[in-house]
Amino acid sequence: MTRDQRLSILGPAGMAIARLDAAADEPPSPEQIEQLRRVFAASGRKSPMPKAA
């Protein structure tokens, strides 16, 4: 989603609130990052889907 699309949906006040909310978030810890890596390492298709009949 582009910045212009977000702005058209949220408006200037909504964008300001989103910026303040994002600034208040703590970055993920190394443990959280490692946990996400393990979760997403197993996701995704490893082999092609069989062709439909």
Rank of each mutant, 00 (worst) to 15 (best):
M1S: 13
M1W: 06
T2L: 05
T2N: 01
T2K: 02
R3V: 11
R3N: 10
R3E: 07
R3D: 11
D4H: 04
D4V: 03
Q5V: 12
R6H: 09
R6K: 11
R6Q: 12
R6L: 15
R6S: 13
R6G: 08
L7R: 15
L7S: 12
S8Y: 03
S8C: 03
I9T: 10
I9L: 15
L10C: 05
L10D: 10
L10G: 00
G11W: 05
G11E: 07
G11S: 09
P12T: 01
P12Y: 03
A13E: 15
A13G: 07
M15N: 02
M15I: 13
M15R: 01
A16T: 11
A18K: 09
A18T: 06
A18H: 06
R19W: 05
R19H: 09
L20F: 07
L20C: 01
L20G: 07
D21H: 10
D21C: 07
D21R: 15
A22K: 12
A22M: 13
A22D: 08
A23C: 03
A23M: 12
A23K: 15
D25Q: 14
D25A: 14
D25L: 15
E26L: 12
P27C: 01
P28V: 08
P28I: 07
S29V: 00
S29L: 03
S29H: 00
P30E: 08
P30R: 05
P30K: 02
P30L: 08
E31G: 00
E31V: 06
E31L: 05
Q32L: 08
Q32I: 05
Q32P: 00
Q32A: 11
Q32T: 14
I33Y: 01
I33S: 04
E34Y: 00
E34W: 04
E34A: 15
E34G: 03
E34S: 02
Q35E: 14
Q35F: 09
Q35S: 09
Q35D: 14
Q35L: 11
L36E: 03
R37A: 03
R37T: 00
R37Y: 05
R38F: 04
R38Q: 15
V39T: 10
V39N: 04
F40H: 11
F40N: 07
F40T: 15
F40E: 06
F40V: 13
F40A: 09
A41K: 10
A41L: 12
A41N: 10
A41P: 05
A42K: 13
S43N: 01
S43L: 06
S43C: 04
S43I: 00
S43M: 04
G44K: 01
G44R: 02
G44F: 00
G44L: 02
K46G: 13
K46P: 06
K46Y: 07
S47Y: 11
M49W: 12
M49C: 06
M49G: 07
M49V: 07
M49A: 12
M49F: 06
M49L: 10
P50W: 10
P50Q: 14
P50F: 13
K51E: 11
K51W: 09
A52E: 10
A52M: 14
A53P: 15
A53Y: 03
